[in-house]
Design a binder for these strands. Structure first.
Lengths: 229, 229
DNA sequence: CCAAAAGTGTTTCACGTACACCCATGC
DNA sequence: GCATGGGTGTACGTGAAACACTTTTGG
């Protein structure tokens, strides 16, 4: 029984830092572990890589198993290989970060997880293993990359207002932006489609809705265009 | 004898894309394999990660064992986990890229390598495994990052002329730059130390030598400075 | 004295930034 | 009619880009 190798091998895992955005701030998705070690404590969703699946497949599988999430934007972040990351044995983990439209998804705990819930980034602290470090690295990457790649749209509903988009950048970059300049800039890029629709159920003038034009963006990039906020 | 685990584990390796720069162009360091599979063919230096060393330690160890290189700039690139990367079995590899001052180092083949040699980037093709892909990814990363991080200095001698520095950017970015604007920009950043020395053995007016001031650069970064070419 | 590269300033234009008011809507 | 956020234009300054000639040195 079991698998035998000539030399000792580190175990290989994946972990996901899942970002979501609501009216208040940037959130990340944590699970409460239902198995040792650190049973009952909060951690990033993740688990061991099977020998017959790719790293990305493993991440998506673990995400669905532990939190119910599907169809998320996923990108590799960094591989953490310190010797004492895991108290059980040597475990190398490939970290991914994911961006989800929070409104579209309801999270639910499942396999190996007692509970799954969104935490404000500031409260997502004292996690098990070296997961605080992974969260920090993921946030740094997001903050750095969101300015020159159209990642932000993955966090918003398909139809959004310019206010929502500006608020997203203000939240992630942690500074305020000038409304007129922001609108001028984003509209001049010509990657938003202005819809014949306005937001609903607001106690004031309703704002126009927009969609991100992914096709057009790709075409522009091929012509040398650089997205930048 | 051997090590037994409950579940099958992928093997874990590291591979290094080592860049160097000479008068002509950008080079990468390859080894000619001296062991199966693909014995005799050209590949990136690399090998399996031991259970008691970190990923970075493994990269540095393999680099020294196979090419004799020491004291190089090293940074993690990406982790490749496709199922059929290696004909023997499932191998996940953590790729690193390295930058070396070619003049300072003499490469020599050693453990597991029949030969080690520098190749022009254009000639470093038809490598074994998925190494062509790793080289492509490393070059993309270098080209992207060299513009807003002072990576370039890792490829030059400690003392260099502005012409050499400009040539470095022209080579990596693959476009020509205006001499006056380049000098204005790099000097205005105030991260170069002008030395009381000029280059030697040139058949024309000798250019002034400079050093990169790493300490000052770090101080400036803390104050919000952004390096950018 | 000739070849080769070093070194040096100015003008123009685009873009980022700062800044304030009227308008539409729901209650 | 009032509170709330939607939507809009201009002036200024900084920095990127274009561009050519003189100086120094070695052979």
């Amino acid at each position: 029984m079991g698998f035998e190798y000539k030399y000792a091998r580190p175990a290989l895992a994946v972990d996901c830092v899942v970002f979501g955005l609501d009216d208040e701030d940037l959130k990340i998705l944590l699970i409460q572990r239902d198995i040792p070690p650190y049973e009952g404590q909060w951690a990033l969703p993740g688990g061991f890589v099977r020998v017959d699946e790719t790293l990305e497949e493993a991440s998506l599988r673990e995400l669905e198993e532990e939190t119910g999430l599907q169809n998320v934007f996923l990108e590799q972040l960094y591989t953490f290989g310190e010797l004492e990351r895991d108290p059980r044995e040597r475990v190398v983990t490939v970290a991914y970060y994911a961006l989800v439209k929070m409104g579209d998804h309801r999270v639910k705990a499942a396999t190996d997880a007692r509970n799954a819930a969104w935490f404000s980034l500031d409260d997502a602290t004292n996690l098990v293993f070296d997961h605080d470090k992974l969260v920090e690295a993921a946030y740094l990457r997001l903050r750095g990359k969101v300015r020159y790649q159209p990642l932000g749209f993955e966090l918003l509903p398909t139809k959004f207002t310019l206010r929502q988009l500006q608020h997203l950048y203000e939240t992630i970059l942690d500074r305020s932006l000038d409304k007129r300049n922001f609108r001028k800039k984003i509209l001049s890029m010509d990657v938003l489609i202005e819809l014949d629709e306005v937001e609903k159920d607001v106690a004031h003038r309703a704002a126009r809705l927009y969609r991100f034009d992914k096709q057009k963006y790709k075409r522009l990039v091929k012509q040398g265009f650089n997205f930048e906020i």
